[in-house]
Design a protein around this nucleic acid. Structure first.
Lengths: 229, 229
DNA sequence: GCGCTATTGTCGTCTGCCCGACATTGTGGC
DNA sequence: GCCACAATGTCGGGCAGACGACAATAGCGC
């Protein structure tokens, strides 16, 4: 609650506001990607940044046995991506893949740096954005170290529903991302089987409901009570 | 000049160069902390940033059972700290504690933001610094999810020796931080006992050598071969 | 609708590592 | 130098969750 209020005051640091987006659009090129496409891959030169206009993108790494580990989070419309690796010189260390049809604005590194220099308030925004993501990443490390899998899954569901969920008639959040259990496993550092059985346990307790691959949060409070440190 | 440009483009993004440090010193106050002191705590208002002049600082969170989980890494002389939480509005989520005698330059949030606005190249530096740390945090997540404890310990030793190590006559790196096994456990998400026995296994294989609480890396190559994904 | 592949469901087995317990050694403070 | 407490060494039991295997569905292209 306090969090949401602060966001209202200072602006959500994760998403750009409309004039910031306009700035990016002016120096970039709009591109469409269908669902299931890879936008960039590890080892590529990180010479461009992206603004997500529409759709969702997953940032992940590949482990040696081929598992996809979502190290960042899912990037929403209005967010930028590819920032850290582009600002830090060098190559990409992760992959970006679309989990829905996506529209992006692509900006070259040079143009982006130029606009950061000219519009110093945008530079500050980018810095704050990285700071916010930094915190998230640190929280993730803490959770992986200290929490059991059920807690991590419960938190993930709550976080995703908050960020990408759409409320139904009764105000209950529905996650329309159509993630597979394997996807979810990669986001909380566990296996597909464990996600399946935990999700079924949550269903049995009427905390969530699944229609096809869409997940609806029925009882966020009780779900949150699964989070134990 | 060419020297300054090189630093901006290719220099270690984690540490400030001498003119950047001078800039910070001019707007800050120098303070000394003895070893084992807490510099800031979770829940405090994040209204200042720090430049480490001398010594090492550990950034950690507290788990509910009292364990200290090092979520960032150890901060070296020349690095800044307290950035992310200060730039992002709000409170600290972690603790900063000295692991040696430390000299810091303390800068208020306001003064820091002013200097970022005036000296836009410093703003870019800070952004790149956060980007670099972001990458590190993502790598940490990946490692926690995919790697076994021995791999994580091996990598930690190599990373620390590279960053804070001092070479002996034969060029072998010595870690003088005097970390306890408990400290190390908190950095790689495991328990004290596991660290003890693994470290002994490494000793038996002549990969490392311990004198008191100082660790010397005898065979970095062979140690690296313990890192299996 | 049909068929094929991707996804989900469910079950043992297995194991890395946590956790408690305790002895031993080290070390900083006086 | 001595003492008290902190840190290390070592062991066994226990368990969360990985892993493999396979059946049952679902989803999607045609």
């Amino acid at each position: 609650m306090a969090e949401a209020q602060k966001d209202l005051l200072d602006g959500n640091p994760l998403v750009l506001d409309s004039q910031e987006k306009e700035l990016i659009r002016r120096i970039g090129v709009t591109v469409n990607y269908p669902k299931g496409q890879i936008i960039f891959s590890a080892e590529e030169v990180a010479d461009r940044v992206y603004l997500i206009e529409k759709g969702w993108v997953r940032i992940y790494r590949l482990s040696s046995d081929g598992r996809e580990v979502t190290v960042g989070s899912i990037r929403n419309p209005g967010e930028m991506m590819g920032l850290a690796e582009t600002l830090y010189h060098g190559k990409r260390t992760c992959f970006a893949g679309t989990i829905s049809d996506v529209t992006l604005v692509v900006v070259t590194k040079k143009d982006f740096l130029d606009v950061l220099t000219d519009e110093h308030y945008l530079a500050l925004k980018v810095t704050r954005l990285l700071a916010a993501r930094m915190r998230e990443a640190e929280a993730m490390v803490h959770e992986l170290v200290c929490w059991q899998v059920p807690s991590r899954l419960a938190l993930l569901l709550l976080k995703i529903s908050e960020r990408c969920g759409i409320p139904d008639e009764k105000g209950r959040m529905k996650i329309k991302l159509r993630l597979t259990h394997e996807d979810i496993a990669g986001m909380i550092g566990t296996t597909r089987q464990t996600v399946t059985s935990l999700l079924n346990a949550f269903k049995r307790e009427k905390l969530v409901e699944c229609q096809g691959r869409e997940i609806k949060i029925l009882d966020p409070k009780k779900l949150a009570s699964w989070i134990v440190d």
